[in-house]
């Protein structure tokens, strides 16, 4: 386990695993195994993805391919890359926002993750929830963006829509810690630490 992870449960949109570490391990679920646990025919530690500056490098520990090419060693992931792990797990790698180094992994084969989420965000400095396709987490019916960003070791958020945090322990207002719920006009989401 190489970094902190939280799940964003966005009402009416979906569930999203946000990985805050520099490196994530992909593999089968196990006690001290993968950050991104896929319920599939994989090894416990099947591959790692590491952020290096603006780019991401995939290191295969077991059989993996990118866009059909079987990997022999660490390979840089480009926007839109099709990653295949083992024989059946297919996922798409995206860097939707030009100004953010954060990336999104979406499972394309019908495998489930643990916890079950719709996509995985490898969060660099910020993670954008919003109606535009360039958002990391696309929330079609929203009117405003909601941005999660790092400040020091804290996670904070900003949004142009008025929002309130429904947890009295968060007296600081805009800092996200532990499990909390944020509601605003036209949106609501909860964060769960795992």
């Amino acid at each position: 386990m190489s970094g902190k992870r939280i799940v964003a449960w966005v009402d009416g949109v979906g569930g999203f695993l946000i990985c805050l570490g520099e490196e994530v391990v992909l593999g089968q679920p196990s006690v001290d195994g993968a950050d991104i646990a896929v319920l599939a025919d994989l090894s416990r530690r099947h591959a790692t993805i590491r952020r290096e500056g603006e780019s991401y490098v995939l290191t295969p520990l077991h059989r993996a391919s990118i866009d059909g090419r079987v990997l022999a060693g660490p390979t840089v992931l480009n926007d839109g890359a099709q990653v295949k792990l083992g024989d059946t797990v297919r996922m798409k790698f995206h860097k939707p926002h030009a100004l953010s180094a954060s990336a999104v992994l979406t499972l394309e084969s019908h495998h489930k993750t643990e916890p079950a989420v719709d996509a995985i965000v490898l969060m660099s400095e910020s993670c954008i929830f919003g109606p535009q396709p360039r958002s990391h987490i696309c929330c079609r019916d929203w009117t405003d963006d909601f941005v999660l960003f790092r400040r020091g070791s804290d996670l904070q958020f900003r949004t142009s829509a008025p929002a309130e945090v429904e947890d009295e322990s968060l007296s600081t207002g805009k800092t996200i810690a532990g499990n909390c719920r944020i509601e605003g006009k036209g949106f609501a989401l909860s964060f769960e630490e795992i």
Binding site: D11, D141, N179, R181, E183, F187, S190
Partner: peptide, 8 residues
């Protein structure tokens, strides 16, 4: 969109 029951 408001839901009566929050996550958790």
């Amino acid at each position: 969109m408001r839901y009566a029951y929050p996550s958790g």
